[in-house]
């Protein structure tokens, strides 16, 4: 975990330095004791200090009680599945407007179930369609929320 924590601390420090430097370009208001730059600037400094403390803690800590860190490796099957799953979810979200919720949802549900290792196709098809209809019905007709209809916009 030590190495992972060092990477996290350095990432946090870079993030805070970028945020701090951005606050330097914020507009200065006249006759205002505390402007819009005040809070983010101090928060960025606070984040930097905490990350620095984490970094020092990890550098000074020995490896004796070190616990194994969760790895992010593309060779790991779980990580491959996660990336594929994240891709399905992102593509699904991007398809909402062009394809519409009704068309995109069963495809995404089926794809995700397949990715998770389910192979009972009748169950997958029925569940995908049923979940889509229940959620769409609940939001559209029960709550009156206009879900994106995409290609079905002219039909419904």
């Amino acid at each position: 975990m030590k190495k992972a924590n060092i990477v996290c601390a350095v990432t946090g420090m870079i993030f805070s330095v970028v945020a701090f430097s951005m606050t330097l370009s914020f507009k200065q208001f006249q006759n205002v004791p505390v402007g819009p730059e005040f809070f983010p600037r101090y928060l960025a400094a606070g984040l930097f200090i905490c990350c620095l403390v984490l970094l020092i803690q990890q550098v000074r800590a020995g490896l004796k009680n070190d616990t194994p860190a969760p790895t992010i490796s593309l060779k790991d099957k779980g990580m491959q599945r996660l990336l594929a799953g994240a891709a399905i979810i992102v593509i699904y979200a991007l398809c909402w407007e062009p394809l519409g919720f009704i068309a995109a949802t069963p495809l995404a549900l089926f794809g995700l179930m397949f990715l998770l290792g389910l192979r009972r196709y009748p169950v997958m098809v029925i569940f995908s369609l049923a979940a889509m209809f229940v959620i769409f019905g609940a939001f559209r007709f029960f709550l009156g929320i206009d879900m994106p209809l995409g290609i079905l916009d002219s039909l419904l």
Binding site: A108, L109, L112, M113, L116, L118, V123, F127, A131, M132
Partner: peptide, 10 residues
């Protein structure tokens, strides 16, 4: 959970 997780995502 293979059924539950996709539903939670939607």
């Amino acid at each position: 959970r293979k059924l539950l997780i996709p539903a939670i995502m939607v």
